[in-house]
Design a binder for these strands. Structure first.
Lengths: 227, 227
DNA sequence: GTAAATCTTCAAGGTTCCATCAAAAATAAA
DNA sequence: TTTATTTTTGATGGAACCTTGAAGATTTAC
């Protein structure tokens, strides 16, 4: 899951991004209104964590912007305990959930996962395809009845493939989705090759088909009609 | 899809053309007003990416020129964030979409695809003809119910034929459309012969008719009334 | 703090695609 | 019919692209 945290309190922000990254997400940070809008213009995110109180502009403005630009990320609002009005206003403006400070990071993570579920799996805890089952709650992956051990990158890659079946995913877009910002600094796509290789190997070892088709000159396609 | 990028910032321009080429498009570059107009006079493009701020003349002039000359390319404007006036003026002058810098290249590509869809397929994701279906989103080609594997050039050629049914396409125009600038370096049309041959073969193998009619001395015609 | 796991980088080898060459076939002109 | 021109086709070398293993760097888990 790719997340953008919009939060000006740098310590809290750092805690959040660190935690979420350790939980296996790709997590970026925007510490003011301006940077947030720039990022939203440029990248796509599965979820946004939005602090309503920002120094250079109200977080509600960002919500309006999201609505106006038809950005389809889930939005989780974070606000101070006493800022009830902002919370209500935020939900009315289309935010999907809220959390009042202070909160546990595990709570944040759980809520984000729930939002993700609602968006990509119709609330289901599992992404299913053929003999592959992914529990996005526990990050457990079952192939042909047996658990398959995946590293975080492999897991993220598989989820990205499964939520984009039968569509060519260019190496560029895979890089963006798995590495976020950092992808811009990369000269080649060696890691994409690597992780695709490892994922393929594990799926086949686990008894699945080689669903990941190479599309020469473009990227890969998770082909659901593959023997 | 054949694209002309009109952008004076050479680094950005290079990034854009590289990216778009990797995404499978034919992409040319004009780094100033003068060269842009020359290209527009000489060639045709599906889409233009136009930076509003050019050193030797405003990008808006190019828009006026496009309108005056009735050039039917889609136009996507690129402008600095604070150049809101230019953006509005651009849209009023007939640009089809805009993007403010900085933007992400995948966003650029997505917008261009959307413009292309609007222009050639009435917003539909599919180009259909007889037993041939092309999903321009996933780049999947289905003939007689079965997927047909095409290389990039073959794919581009087929799309070009299908968006110009029953019209004679000279080898010159095919070369320009599939190879852009690079076509100038080529001495003969051997490569056109080659790819037409391969495409014909694949369509027939896949169970389609030989729709590609040779027009002696001119080029080819995708003839929809062919046995 | 240390060992193990994971991720990234490097380099070699293999595959696919494509432009070119050359020869054969088809068409038009003489 | 002969000749010239155009088109088709097969073959080939080279370039771009993909895969893979292994080593080095970083991160994570204990």
């Amino acid at each position: 899951m790719k997340i953008l945290v919009i939060e000006d309190n740098l310590e809290l922000a750092q805690n959040m991004t660190d935690y979420l990254q350790r939980e296996g997400h790709v997590c970026e940070l925007a510490d003011n209104h301006h940077r947030a809008v720039n990022k939203l213009d440029a990248f796509s995110y599965d979820c946004l964590v939005l602090d309503i109180m920002l120094p250079d502009g109200n977080g509600l403005d960002i919500l309006r912007y999201i609505k106006h630009e038809k950005i389809d990320s889930c939005v989780l609002i974070v606000s101070a305990k006493n800022a009830l009005d902002d919370k209500v206003a935020g939900l009315e403006l289309g935010a999907d959930d809220y959390l009042t400070k202070p909160f546990h990071l595990s709570e944040l993570n759980a809520r984000l996962k729930a939002l993700y579920r609602r968006k990509y799996t119709q609330g289901d805890k599992e992404i299913k395809f053929a003999e592959i089952f992914i529990n996005i709650d526990t990050m457990e992956t079952i192939v042909a009845g047996k658990p398959m051990e995946l590293t975080r990158k492999e897991y993220a890659l598989l989820v990205y493939f499964l939520t984009n079946k039968n569509r060519v995913l260019t190496r560029q877009s895979i890089a963006e989705h798995l590495w976020g910002d950092y992808a811009d600094n990369l000269l080649n796509f060696d890691f994409v090759y690597q992780h695709v290789k490892n994922l393929r190997k594990k799926i086949i070892q686990a008894g699945g088909n080689d669903y990941i088709e190479t599309v020469y000159g473009l990227g890969y396609k998770f082909n659901s009609n593959r023997s």
